[in-house]
Design a protein around this nucleic acid. Structure first.
Lengths: 236, 236
DNA sequence: GCCTGCGCAAATGTATACAACCGTTGACGG
DNA sequence: CCGTCAACGGTTGTATACATTTGCGCAGGC
């Protein structure tokens, strides 16, 4: 196998074709948009019916989600949306605080005009979602923003790790977030884009660090209430 | 769900029951011990026959291995042992250099007598494997040593990330390693244990850093030859 | 009244049958 | 002689049938 082929494989997302598994895609999005709250039972038959596929596909998707730690699988007991403990929540943010500032620094050094434009566009979309009261969508886009920065840094391995941590953060925020608005994000993200545009590595690193610390400090580890919508309601 | 139940789930390995999937276990070990060199084709039927299970189980295991990035799945083309590119190799070691020294520091602060004893025992086993000319086994144990340190640091999230990076390192070493012996490991690992025993955080961090740099610098990115043993030979 | 244990319903776990796809081979035509 | 295309064998992808396990309810006994 040639080097270029290796690169091609590597550039692809690890799951190869999981991305086009409707269960994986749909449930992932629903979790990231907080339509599926932590702890929600994910019965295979229900998902199979909802997406119009066999349980085989459902299982593949659930296993992939379990590997991303968005879903918990217990033998003979089925799947449910992951329910990260306070400890896990803390650790995920600690890991982010370790990895992302350095990633932002590197991104600032490498960011070109196209990168900055893509980020600005993305930030606009995020802003629009917020203005539209689509807070779930806004949250998912906000996470994606962090992933984009990690990708600009051009370290795929670390970017993949960050992608995982970011998606888990959606669950953590669903469980432990106290503030009603994420308005801080807007300013933070824009300031970060500015720093990247100026290729100001030190500033980007520091902005990312403080942004994460702020997010982390807004978590309160108390249990919240649970709703009782049906699975179908939450997916559609 | 109570907090203690959350903790129990969290402490379990992410895959829940994947660990007792014979395909996952067996192929993982064979890869870590370099009996399955990078690029080896992993046909589902062959694995099913070898392990005496159905293709269903084989697929589950292969998917799990793909998530660990030890195996590459290409749609309609099956699985093969991953073949990390030089770029991926470099990135994996960069990530390790970022995470593990800090992990070692934390481990030095937390290591108790039982931890140190377990490490020493493990180092002995590693040494014995080396003396016995079981270089594959020695390599796997050497990786496991790094994972143990990450676990002592008591940051499970980061430890899981490190576990993944370490296992990928086995493939990278198989492809790009130049030195015939890993004798350096012995000394490095023992020195690390000593630092942990003394709770010398700074020394542990520095030892880990230099250990990884040394490993990394021993990689040469040229393509090696491939053997032509049968799949069955390599698994048993 | 509560605890125990049996049995049923419903879910997950596994195997297998069938469908779809890929790579190869061989024949045909240029 | 070489390139192209079609048919075939083999491998993977999906659905479904069957086995196993779990959790609940109900009945019986202590």
């Amino acid at each position: 196998m040639s080097i270029t082929q290796q690169e091609a494989n590597f550039s692809r997302r690890f799951d190869a074709d999981i991305v086009q598994n409707p269960v994986f895609t749909g449930v992932e999005r629903a979790i990231l948009e907080q339509r599926l709250p932590p702890g929600t039972r994910l019965a295979e038959t229900d998902l199979a019916e909802f997406y119009g596929v066999s349980r085989t596909i459902v299982r593949t998707g659930l296993q992939a989600l379990a590997h991303s730690q968005l879903v918990t699988l217990r033998p003979n007991r089925g799947a449910s949306v992951a329910n990260p403990s306070p400890r896990e929540a803390r650790e995920v943010f600690e890991a982010r605080e370790l990895l992302e500032p350095r990633s932002a620094r590197e991104a600032a050094l490498r960011a070109n005009r196209a990168d900055v434009r893509a980020l600005r566009l993305h930030a606009q979309e995020e802003h629009a979602a917020m203005a539209n009261n689509e807070s779930g969508r806004a949250l998912r886009l906000s996470g994606r923003f962090h992933v984009m920065i990690a990708q600009i840094a051009n370290q795929r391995t670390i970017a993949e790790i960050i992608e995982n941590l970011v998606s888990r953060s959606s669950l953590i925020i669903a469980l432990y977030w106290t503030r009603s608005s994420t308005r801080c994000d807007e300013g933070c993200h824009n300031a970060l884009i500015d720093a990247l545009e100026r290729n100001d590595a030190g500033e980007a690193e520091e902005l990312m660090r403080s942004h994460l610390v702020e997010l982390h400090s807004a978590l309160r580890f108390e249990v919240g209430p649970s709703s009782n919508l049906t699975l179908k309601d939450m997916l559609s």
